[in-house]
Design a protein around this nucleic acid. Sequence first.
DNA 1: CGGTTTTGACCAGCGC
DNA 2: GCGCTGGTCAAAACCG
Length: 295
Amino acid sequence: MMEKKGLNMEDYANIGSFPSYSFPSVFDLSEERSFMELLGVQQNMNNYSDSLLDLPVVVKEPPLESDGNGKEYSEVLNSQQQPATPNSSSISSASSEAINDEHNKTVDQTNNQLNKQLKAKKTNQKKPREARIAFMTKSEVDHLEDGYRWRKYGQKAVKNSPFPRSYYRCTSVSCNVKKHVERSLSDPTIVVTTYEGKHTHPNPIMSRSSAVRAGSLLPPPAECTTNFASDQNYDISQYYNQQRQQVLFNTLSSLGFPSKNMNATFSQDRPLCNPRVQDNGLLQDVVPSHMFKEE
DNA sequence: CGGTTTTGACCAGCGC
DNA sequence: GCGCTGGTCAAAACCG
């Protein structure tokens, strides 16, 4: 079996320029195409770089319309995955196949859900549903900070999984955005966060200076690395967490979530350094532009 | 005290 | 019709 390595600093810096690969970004589900076919995306990606295995899949489900005949599509994007931390590269390397399996399973679950929804659509044309966007993120914490305030309103055990699914609702009045968070069964290091709906209000913590925007796919700036090397109190994994969260922000922005003045910062509690300033720290930095579809 | 989390109950959709 | 499952409700507990 091919040995796979986790992301190192060089990989991390290079993700932003990985070559374009050709696969459909829009999938016609009117043919009841299996989401398993989307695995081809991952398989194709495997041909390019091992490090791409560390990229999460973003599955964007369209809202289910009640009017019937329109074609449905689902878009698969790739956003930056939190790379393995220096101490956890083994997670990435050892779990490359696990991640693929996870992709399989998650995509399969999504497929099953969509098939059900398609079936329901064909029969009853029931109530429409908001578009859903699912993120697979490697994280130690279940509830990833995304800048919005959420109130947990439920938790359910998931069939065939020891990990419960938590349900959250945006706390802003008149904002009906919901999300649910669950851990992957086959790879508990992966958190699957599914957003439903669009926020009707600005992000409450989006007012910080753009000078600390951390949207790039670059390794920690030199001073951070230096600090990391010289200061044991500096947790470089925190930097990567912030990077990942920023990408989550940017991904949401790219997919139509409120994104004006998105000068996010996640570095309030990280005084040792500022991440490299990047004006174009959007998902486009890591995803070929042809993969985007305007709504 | 107000906001959030927890958790059992409830409901709807679906398959058999 | 029944059971299973996902999703939501709401009262109680918790917390700052």
